[in-house]
Design a binder for these strands. Structure first.
Lengths: 231, 231
DNA sequence: ATCTTTTTTCGTCCTACTGACGATAACCAC
DNA sequence: GTGGTTATCGTCAGTAGGACGAAAAAAGAT
């Protein structure tokens, strides 16, 4: 391997959570050029002896301050247009993280600030680099995966009610779901959720049963989003 | 961007086709170390001014000799373990290609040979580098995508019969499907296929209508593989 | 020419899933 | 208690899908 073009490799994170009935993303405000003072996805260079998932998990921990075996982390895609970074040839491996609601993040080393922003408030071409595209891909991935995996539970604390799970679906999909049909669907899909044996207390209305995530990796049959109107 | 670890970036291709009722993959026999004389995925270095999809399309054309606007090409995932290549730190972006049956490939520049191999004959740890893992991921992606996209048509010539499309599903999924229910399902799913207005001739049995791929990108409702037995 | 085989294509029955929505249960505030 | 709110259970009709019968349209055998 005598000659090869030298690339820089980074990881970038699309970190999503549901808070206050809004789908939010963790962004950092860049403190240095290029794109200084613009919002960007958290991320950084991959260490020379570091595996890609390790680098993503490290960045996630650094930005959220939370030890990472919480929520869900998966590779989203790789973006490597020659012009995407004015500093040189940078290929970035994007990861998608789904987390339960967390306390506000702390600003990192080279970031002026870090915060949760509602994705509904992020207009096109507002983010640094090609991060708009990466965010759009991450949102579409998350929306699609809620259909056929139990990943909506990654947005919830370890024990949650069916209603909480329903607000996750409603928030991510942006549409309302019938509470009675949703309840029937979730509890009748094998392995989706398992009863925790306890109930909520102190809220309004009838106390709700608490559930944990079940063992299923795939939902059969899948949840169907109402937006895909049928023929 | 003064200092950053220097990486090499490559693309590797999982190229699948259906020929003679078998799911086959395009492999090259390595002519140089490491892993000399082992089968490997076709691929190569990304040019310094080359975008990743362009590099993948270029490699695909080089290996198959076919101008590339045929079939389907999508990014599969990125593999970058520090130990995956003994020559140094190489991050590879894997692409998945689905093609109709093509003539045998020509051996490339640094490959001793290239050929279609049935995936059923590829045992574990037979391929160079981590290409076993990449192949496994590509197969799972292809199997899953046949469920909810019209991508099975990428394995077919421009005009095809429902029976041909059915053998694609049966070959990729490894299970038999009822011809009558399959016919009903395909023709009743909006946008999956469109009648070409012509029929086959010269075969055994009743002549079949020819179809082209329809405009749909997603199948609603999806095709369901029988392997996922229900509760 | 007629029969058999093969393959396509249409139709029927039955069950499972889903959307719309009524009804009841169990809490809180007053 | 009453009223408000939320959770949970049921009912009913429409639809999709698996199992399978049957007719249609060709090729080949006799």
């Amino acid at each position: 391997m005598a000659e090869f073009p030298p690339f820089a490799v980074t990881v970038d994170l699309v970190v999503l959570t549901v808070r206050a009935d809004e789908l939010c993303i963790l962004l950092v405000r860049r403190g240095v050029p290029p794109y200084q003072d613009r919002w960007a996805l958290p991320g950084g260079f991959v260490g020379f002896d570091e595996d890609l998932p390790d680098a993503a998990a490290r960045e996630l921990t650094e930005e959220t301050g939370v030890p990472e075996p919480i929520g869900h982390l998966e590779q989203l895609g790789t973006y490597g247009s020659p012009k995407r970074d004015p500093r040189g040839r940078v290929v970035t491996v994007a990861y998608l993280a789904l987390l339960p609601d967390l306390p506000p993040p702390v600003a990192g080393t080279d970031a002026a600030a870090a915060d949760w922003l509602p994705v509904s408030r992020i207009a096109d071409a507002q983010l640094a680099f090609d991060h708009d595209v990466i965010l759009a891909d991450g949102l579409e991935r998350a929306r699609a995966k809620l259909e056929y995996t139990p990943l909506a539970t990654a947005f919830c604390p370890p024990e949650f009610t069916i209603a909480r799970l329903r607000t996750v679906y409603e928030t991510v999909w942006g549409s309302r779901l019938d509470p009675r049909n949703f309840h029937r669907k979730v509890t009748s899909t094998p392995g989706f959720v398992a009863a925790a044996g306890r109930v909520t207390e102190g809220d309004r209305g009838r106390p709700a049963q608490l559930f944990r995530r079940g063992p299923a990796e795939l939902l059969h049959p899948p949840m169907l989003r109402p937006s895909v109107a049928r023929s």
